[in-house]
Every structure is written in structure tokens, then in C-alpha cells.
Amino acid sequence: MLEMIKELCTLSGISGRENAVRDYIIEKIKDYAEYSVDPLGNLIVFKKGKNPAKNKVMLDAHMDEVGMIITAITAEGYLKFAKVGGIDSRVMLGRAVRVGDKAVNGVIGIKPVHLVDKGAEADIPKSEDLYIDIGAKDKAEAEEYVRPGDAAWFAGDFVEFGNGFVKSKALDDRAGCAILIELIRSELQYDAWFSFSTQEEIGTRGAQASAFTIAPDYAIVVETTTAADISGVKDEKRVCICGKGGTVSFMDRSTIYNKELFDKAFEVAEREGIACQPKTMVAGGNDAGAIHKSRGGVKVLTVSVPCRYLHSPSCVIKYSDVDESLKLIKAMAEEFAKW
């Protein structure tokens, strides 16, 4: 699965431009399940299990990543952009990016610190003052390579480091996509429906439509979430911890999760010897926010891979958490199918 996560993360796919990610996933699953692509670009998959399911279970992971969209080209040939998804400007300054269909190299520039007024050395430029420099001499040269509306995304390699950790852009939520692909390619006890959803990062747009189409009784959202188990952060402020397994949410900014499902996850994890932990802070949100309100309502569980530095070019996960999350998700899908 690690190789698949690497390949998925290397693809570019900001919200609304998930094509390359979707094509990759279709290649991986087409021999194992039935699939269709809906009007919003969601990839909807049905996988036949050994048994028919009593309840319809939907598993969701989003294909899109945070990034940038080019809004204008200046007279000097610099590219102005809007953020796509929630990105803190502090992780953007001085970063290498790629832009447009030709994937040209660019950098997010910054005024040298030597020229910054005394006392302002820590001040971060306003979002609207950020720009990408692709080395164009002027507007005309830039226009040969880039048009307003083009996507831009963080450059950078997929790196394995330390004791079982990996670093990449877009681990949110290509790690989730990889888990779902792995499930589809494996033998399942019960029939299952999958949504590889679009546009989560700009407000869970894709999942709202795919949940309507699938019309599930239960849903499991497979995500990454904010691990703050870093230097200087203690106890519950760490939210979740890399290496302690799949993270189960009781509440976030878009969903109050079904308590029975939350409790069941820990019960099953204990029974099966799967590492699993609660998310100890009400923060963030995901496709569950759209799915639980779909049609007449859907009971939802979220299982996330703990991820440090989410929405930055350098997301970090511990690989063992992917394996543990996969085990828990598979077990829970079976529980819900026969609940």
C-alpha cells in the first residue's frame, strides 16, 4: 500500500481538478468492482461481497488536495493566486510549486528578510500579496505557459524517514484513497459501496452528491486528521498521536457522530487487537458533515490516519497507522453491514 500512497500523492489534484487521481484509482480497481463517475466527478464504486449486506454501507475518501488556483498574471509576469482549501500562509512562503497543464516550476517568493523593517521580521505577508514566480520575463512570456484558472500545487518528493514515517503533500486524503483501493482489491464479506469524492477541501461538495446517489444506511469516512503530537504540545492538545492507530472522532466542526458507532469502534478494536484512539479535540471537519445529513440521515463513523502538519507541503504520517486504520475500517464495515 505504501507504493500506492506514494503514487497517489505524487499526482496533482486540487479541488475540482481530481482527474489524474480518479484515472489512477480506476486503473487500480476496474478489475475488482463496478464503477461510475457522477456529474461532480465523484468515482462511485460497488464491490460485491461474499454475502449480501443487510445494511448499505458507504465508504468515503476524498481525492482532492489543498493547493492554489491562478487568478491573474501581473504585467511583470508574476502569477497571483487564491488558496484552494485552508492553507496557512506560513507554510507557503519560500516553497517550490508546479503550475498549470505544463507543470512549470515556480516558487512562492518573499521579500528578503534583510530588507524587512526592524521589528517586522516575523510579520507574514497578507494572503492577497502572495505570488508565484515562474521566472517569466514579462506577462507575455508567462501567458505562453499559464492561464488564469490553472491549478498550482506544492512540489516536493515523497520521503520515507525516521522510524516508519513518511512525508509528502496530499497525504490528506490520498492515504484514505489508498485504504479504500486496498479494500476494493481484497475479498469482502459483504457488499459495499465506495465514494472517491471530489471537492472536500472547499466544503465537502462532492460527497453531498455521492451520498445522495449511494443512499447508504451507514457511512465510514476514511480520512487523515490533525496530529499535534509535536514538540511543546502536551496531553489532549495533541489531538491524536502518530503510531497509536486509527483515530475515531466523537465530534468535529461539521458532525456530531453517532455515539453507538463511536463506542462500537473501540469495542471492535479491542476485540480484534487493533490499535485505535479517540480524537481528543473538537476541530476540523470532513465529508461526514455532508453525508450524515444526506436524504433521511445517515449514521456516520470517521476513522482517520493521524497526520502531522496537515494542509502543508510536508504532511507526515506514521505508516503503521495506515495498516491499523485499514484493519479497523474493514472490521467496522462488516459490523455495519450486518448490524
Binding site: 485552508g86 492553507i87 496557512d88 506560513r90 507554510v91 512525508k167 490533525t226 499535534a228 509535536i230 514538540s231 489531538v239 479535540m281 476541530a283 476540523g284 502531522r308 502538519y309 496537515l310 494542509h311 502543508s312 510536508s314 507526515v316
Partner: peptide
């Protein structure tokens, strides 16, 4: 990787 805090937190 130099640590940072995501916008969610």
C-alpha cells in the same frame, strides 16, 4: 520537517 500547526488547530 520543521514543525507547524495546521489551520484547524
Amino acid at each position: 520537517v520543521i514543525t507547524s500547526t495546521p489551520p484547524h488547530l
